[in-house]
Design a protein around this nucleic acid. Structure first.
Length: 422
DNA sequence: TCTGGGGTCCTAGGACCC
DNA sequence: TCTGGGGTCCTAGGACCC
């Protein structure tokens, strides 16, 4: 059996831990640039505010006091997530962290009669120790555990824990679940399924295997099996990630190549830092640009280009230089750019980098690596954002220049702000 | 006026090889 | 005039997730 532990309205709940006055009120948390809604309290859901709603469409609700608004504070959420996950890791031998607010507990070897009490006590322990409310869904497959967690969240009577542990409960749950809410059925496939007469998850599993295979191939088949109780989405084996992306929308559109280049350098430097932090190096560096897709009165352009390094690297100079080179091949005058980003791929462990046969200069590489190491040391020791950076970077802070007018303080991580609050 | 960011996996189709 | 077949590898793009 699997248990999916899901933090309720996670970002909102994090804000409420430090601002109890938000309890019981309609609250939303906004994406970067205060762009759109990425988390809602039950009260704001009840007001009909949808996930992803652009903030400007509901800002009058905030103006008249009916809605509380928070800019996102990912440092806080990451820290709260770590606290929740470490509690979960102490409850069972194996957990798989699935996202910032979800984890699967692997319940192998736990006697069936002990599962519910264990989950109930986990719900109250996490609440008590972190302030975060969670719901737990238990079932034989991950896809069913997801569905169970929806019920745990929706109906108070479950006290946060819903189990699907026999066929009668499974069929009941599937019959009450719209097919579009199933894990693995997204916004493209769901309308097609409904057209074909498949409204609920139960309708889906009642279709013959051949029909599923014909229309939805492997992914659809996997979902079909999982909903019938056969495990297809196995326990994860720890795999290194394959790419790292740093990108941002700009508060205002940018036309100037030099200005974009400085931003791209910041994004690339952040990717390089992440590589060093996890002890990996990247072979490929991709830079992409976006014009403003919502402005159909403006010319659109969504280019990207990849530079393949001769030898995988993680030092800031080489990653930044490759990203800027890629930018120069795609930049065109006459467009107003709204977003840019850098993706590093072909990731390998840093100690397993194989030097290129041609033109690899170990001395130069060693110099570059040393400079990055020293930059890391200085930046880690420094307070606030007085960062050591390359001249080609803009501010050294890839998050600079974005709107964030409702941000909470760094309650959990910044000593300065704590003192200021006191 | 104002519309997020970071990932993974799968498939189709082209390049290439014998 | 007549011009094969089968396999692998790589990549771009789409769909999905949170």
């Amino acid at each position: 059996m699997y248990a999916l532990v899901d933090c309720n309205n996670f970002f909102v709940s994090c804000e409420r831990v430090f601002r109890p006055e938000l309890e019981g009120k309609a609250v939303v948390v906004l994406s970067n640039n205060d762009g759109c809604v990425v988390a809602r309290s039950n009260e704001s859901k009840a007001m009909g505010i949808r996930m992803g709603t652009p903030f400007y469409q509901i800002s009058r609700l905030a103006d008249c006091g009916k809605l509380q608004v928070c800019s996102s504070n990912y440092i806080l959420y990451g820290d709260m997530s770590d606290r929740v996950m470490s509690i979960l890791a102490d409850t069972v031998p194996k957990i798989e962290i699935y996202s910032i607010d979800e984890a699967f507990l692997v319940l192998d070897g736990i006697p069936p009669e002990k599962i519910r009490p264990l989950c109930l006590s986990t719900v109250s322990k996490v609440r008590k120790w972190t302030g975060i409310p969670v719901s737990i869904g238990v079932a034989p497959t991950k896809t069913l555990a997801k569905i169970a967690s929806h019920f745990a969240k929706k109906y108070k009577g479950y006290r946060g824990v819903c189990m699907i542990d026999d066929d009668r409960k499974r069929e009941k749950a599937l019959s009450l679940t719209p097919v579009g809410e199933v894990w693995g059925v997204g916004r493209k496939i769901a309308p097609k399924l409904r057209e074909a007469g498949v409204e609920t998850a139960l309708d889906y599993v009642c279709r013959p295997e051949t029909w599923i295979r014909e229309h939805y191939m492997l992914a659809g088949l996997r979902t079909w099996m999982e909903l019938r109780g056969t495990v297809c989405v196995e326990a994860e084996t720890e795999t290194a990630r394959k790419s790292i992306c740093t990108s941002r929308s700009f508060a205002d559109m940018i036309e100037d190549e030099d200005e974009i280049s400085q931003k791209v350098a910041d994004f690339a430097a952040h990717c390089a830092l992440k590589l060093r932090q996890e002890g990996t190096a990247a072979q490929d560096v991709t830079t992409f640009l976006h014009t403003n897709r919502f402005r159909d009165d403006l010319a659109q352009y969504f280019p990207s280009a990849t530079v393949r390094l001769d030898t995988a690297a993680n030092n800031t100079q080489e990653i930044v230089s490759a990203a800027v080179r890629a930018l120069h091949t795609i930049y065109r005058e006459g467009y107003r750019y709204k977003k840019a980003g850098v993706i590093v791929g072909g990731i390998v462990p840093a100690d397993a980098v194989s030097p290129s046969l041609f033109g690899f200069d170990p001395e130069q590489r060693e110099k570059n690596d040393t400079v990055s190491r020293i930059m890391d040391k200085v930046n880690a020791a420094g307070k606030n954002s007085s960062l050591l950076r390359l001249a080609s970077q803009k501010s050294g802070d890839y998050t600079s220049g974005i709107r964030s007018e409702h941000r909470s303080r760094r309650y959990s991580t910044s000593w300065d702000e704590l003192i200021e609050i006191r």
